[in-house]
């Protein structure tokens, strides 16, 4: 891990509006290769919106996103994939009628991985999908679909990986197992952003967290320090009451 390394992603003063609602309101942060950054905050605080903008699903309404020194705001998703950004989805939508192997094959063929793409069987083994390789993705359960979504992302050999609630719905043993994989990916030099509600999991895997509220950063640093900040406590308790 080398959090001191030069950041690969620089987000500054990012704004995203939906009608009159500011989902992101001047958000700035950065991630370095090998670092695992957590985005936390109550529902609607802008975590997923941030990931959607960085991965090209939405064009930003203001501010800048720089990846590897180049502006990427507004560039189409598939081009960002080719540059080395990928992500998983909170609710994964694999290609249901294609087999698990075919799902990964699409990403292998079109992902234009910068370095040699990983071997498909290795990915299947690593993420416990080997026995379903020739079955349609629709037959997987939701945890397995999440793993397929992750292997789809990894098949393109991302340098920046955005994980949107990958751990939700996994049991404790699976959590440890996937945490090991995420840490290994980071150790290999991938910059990782994790959006997660499970605080224990976040604490365990992240180097640093950004706490968001109403599209703005209200804290940056270790999660252990965050939970002592009055402002953070206020947001989370207030968020619970409001919800």
């Amino acid at each position: 891990m080398s959090p001191e390394a030069k950041p690969i992603l620089n987000v500054s003063k990012l704004v995203k509006r939906f009608g009159g609602f500011y989902a992101l309101d001047g958000l700035s942060f950065h991630v370095a290769p090998g670092e695992i950054l957590g985005l936390v905050g109550p529902n609607g605080s802008g975590k997923t919106t941030a990931i959607n903008v960085i991965s090209g699903l939405y064009a930003p309404d203001g501010g800048e996103v720089a990846f590897d020194g180049q502006q990427i705001g507004g560039i189409a998703s598939h081009r960002l994939v080719h540059r080395g950004i990928n992500r998983t989805f909170q609710v994964p939508k694999p290609f249901m009628s294609l087999t698990v192997r075919e799902n990964i094959k699409v990403a292998l063929s079109y992902g234009r991985a910068m370095v040699a793409p990983p071997a498909i069987n290795e990915l299947l083994e690593q993420y416990r999908l080997a026995e379903f390789a020739e079955r349609p993705a629709s037959e997987l359960n939701s945890a397995q679909q999440k793993m397929l979504d992750l292997t789809r992302a990894l098949a393109t050999r991302p340098r920046l990986l955005l994980l949107d609630e990958l751990a939700a719905g996994l049991n404790p043993a699976e959590l440890d197992w996937i945490a090991g994989h995420i840490k290994a990916l980071a150790a290999s030099g991938v910059a990782i952003i994790v959006v997660e509600h499970l605080m224990g999991f976040i604490e365990h895997i992240t180097d640093r967290v950004i706490v968001l509220n109403a599209g703005k950063e209200i804290f940056e640093g270790k999660l252990a320090a965050a939970v002592k900040e009055p402002q953070v406590i206020e947001v989370f308790l207030g968020g619970e009451h409001a919800a």
Partner: peptide, 24 residues
């Protein structure tokens, strides 16, 4: 071909297809 596979991927889910690097 992988071209045909990618078309089917787009049919199944265009967002996941884009995130596989396919120009939808």
């Amino acid at each position: 071909s992988s071209f045909g596979l990618a078309l089917q991927a787009v049919r199944e889910d265009s967002v996941s297809a884009a995130m596989s690097g396919v120009s939808v």
